[in-house]
Design a protein around this nucleic acid. Structure first.
Lengths: 204, 204
DNA sequence: GTCTATATCCAGATAGAC
DNA sequence: GTCTATCTGGATATAGAC
């Protein structure tokens, strides 16, 4: 196994080191409790480099935000390419979000952080952003195709994804202490049951 | 109408003025973007008084947090006193939360703010707190009584309240621009359908 | 208890050598 | 492009008169 002990010869580019360190610190301590000096130490770069690359702390936060939002959008695009029914699309998105919450918790925590507007002024709330709009679009598609029962689009989206997002928040806060994977089937079951089309015979 | 122009002779106590001003500022700008001087100006008191009463900015945040958490707990206790079935209890809680979101948005925004631990160190996440525990208890009761189908307690609670909480978050973020009252019936409908006990004849 | 004026600290940002 | 040393503003917190 000759490669096991090899020292990586291509060092991670400096931008990535900064962003990775910042993400860790921002998520663990909170944006406002992290100084540029903290990031500098964690990333093993000088403070000058940080200002050169990102123009300051807010620049780092913005770069992170758009980078991660973009990753999330690519994830959703991939799901939409590989699956066609709204049900399968929603299911796959929820499954991937659960997986990411376990394996790359920082990313999900940063993306789902309630108030980006507090430290990225002028940015509209994340639920206005493209990936979230696409999620609403998928639910809409499901209502039009008859997979989901028809209701208000906001209510429908909150109904499909609300339970899952709530579980993610509880897991990130440490309130839920088991991996989310074990809850996936039941969460999906609730979501589908909540959005299932009522048969005429069942209504009174 | 002799009272209309009267000047209030019992001024609001200084503690309340400080807390009210702080709540407004914390919610609108974010805790870390508000200085003690801002609170002082908004509340029309001196900075010395603030330190006398609350010991500093963090003291204000803590006092607010416990005060509002307590109000929420009292609300839930009242609901539990006035209603007995889990369904009615959950429904009333959701309705009241929606109402508060419209009429006293600051309170709900502060309580539902994701990360109190960022500015109140040592405090456990809000979903561990007593009112949220009581909400879980009500759902548990509903599963035991057979009102709700049985599933994991976390999943059940997320399923019952997740959609509503998501709607509240979207409303507070300004993404949803209509009052929540208009969505109440559909939100409840989704929640109940998601938790309804499956009849044997319906399963395949 | 309340106030004003002041002290102290530390964050974000910059300058200029290399 | 990267670094160290430095500047500056503003925040928290205190001192001491009233």
């Amino acid at each position: 196994m000759p490669y096991l002990n090899r020292i990586p010869c291509v060092p991670e580019p400096i931008d990535c080191r900064i962003l990775t360190a910042a993400l860790d610190l921002f998520v663990s301590r909170g944006y406002h409790n992290v100084s540029v000096h903290d990031v500098q130490k964690e990333a093993n770069v000088s403070i000058g480099s940080i200002y050169n690359h990102f123009g300051g702390k807010e620049g780092i936060a913005k770069a992170l935000y758009f980078h991660l939002l973009n990753e999330m959008e690519e994830m959703i695009d991939t799901v939409m390419r590989d699956h066609y029914s709204a049900t399968r699309r929603c299911e796959t998105i929820i499954r991937l979000l659960f997986e990411y919450t376990e394996t790359r918790a920082n990313i999900i925590a940063y993306i789902f952080h309630a108030k980006h507007t507090e430290f990225i002024p002028g940015e509209s709330p994340i639920c206005d952003s493209s990936p979230f709009a696409k999620m609403r679009g998928i639910v809409q598609q499901g209502m039009e195709s008859g997979e989901f029962r028809s209701t208000d689009p906001w209510v429908a989206t909150a109904s499909v994804f609300g339970g899952a997002i709530r579980m993610i928040q509880l897991r990130l806060d440490g309130v839920i202490q088991q991996p989310l994977g074990g809850f996936l089937d039941e969460v999906l079951e609730s979501a589908w049951q909540g959005m299932r089309v009522e048969r005429a015979s069942e209504s009174v």
